[in-house]
């Protein structure tokens, strides 16, 4: 996501066209982030909308236009967390709370108390050929605890760098790396039938 800070500044001044340009440059990533986090297209649409509305409303508070992308992602993660915590989400979807099983999770002291919510349904597959494969990968990703899911999506699907992810989540780069590592380990287990080269 390459953003021209001048476009950000113009949007900050209330320029709707500039804001649309920001939306066009970033919505693919944000939409897919919300999609893979929630596992549901309709929810992803709503959350994406909410993200950009919050961005528009608080754009004036962004001191450094160069930091737009990480700031945007921070808002996106918050929008997702707000939704995940809301009871209406609980009413609508079956929730299974999964405790993280990593004993050597260096963040045990964090106690963020984030609900670990696997997605309710995987996305329907459209490509018949690679359909089953996609399904499996998607299900594996959605079964990851939220903390791990976020970094996997941002790094492997959106293509964000480790530094950007760290800034967006407000954690150290090392934390991002260890979350990615743990996520890989978990995914490797879930996808064991498909990754082995023997």
């Amino acid at each position: 996501m390459m953003i021209d800070p001048r476009t950000v500044k113009r949007a900050q001044n209330g320029d709707h066209k500039a804001f649309k340009r920001l939306y066009d440059s970033t919505s693919l990533g944000i939409y897919n982030l919300m999609l893979r986090m929630s596992g549901n297209r309709e929810t992803a649409e709503d959350l994406t909308q909410e993200v950009y509305l919050r961005v528009w409303r608080s754009l004036g508070g962004l001191k450094s236009p160069k930091a737009f992308v990480t700031w945007l992602h921070r808002i996106a993660i918050n929008v997702y967390r707000d939704w995940a915590k809301s009871a209406s989400h609980r009413l609508e979807e079956m929730r299974v709370e999964v405790q993280a099983q990593n004993q050597d999770d260096p963040e045990d002291e964090d106690n963020e108390d984030l609900d670990l919510i696997p997605s309710s349904h995987p996305l329907p597959d459209e490509e018949a050929l690679r359909g089953e494969m996609r399904d499996v990968i998607e299900r594996a990703i959605s079964s990851l605890p939220e903390k791990y899911r976020a970094v996997v999506i941002m790094h492997h699907i959106e293509g964000l760098g480790l530094k950007e992810i760290a800034k967006s989540l407000d954690v150290a780069q090392g934390t991002v790396m260890s979350r990615l590592a743990r996520a890989r380990a978990m995914l490797r287990e879930k996808l064991s039938g498909y990754v082995e080269g023997d």
Binding site: Q49, S86, H89
Partner: peptide, 8 residues
């Protein structure tokens, strides 16, 4: 806008 968010 409902409490849970925007509804369409």
């Amino acid at each position: 806008t409902l409490p849970k968010g925007t509804v369409k």
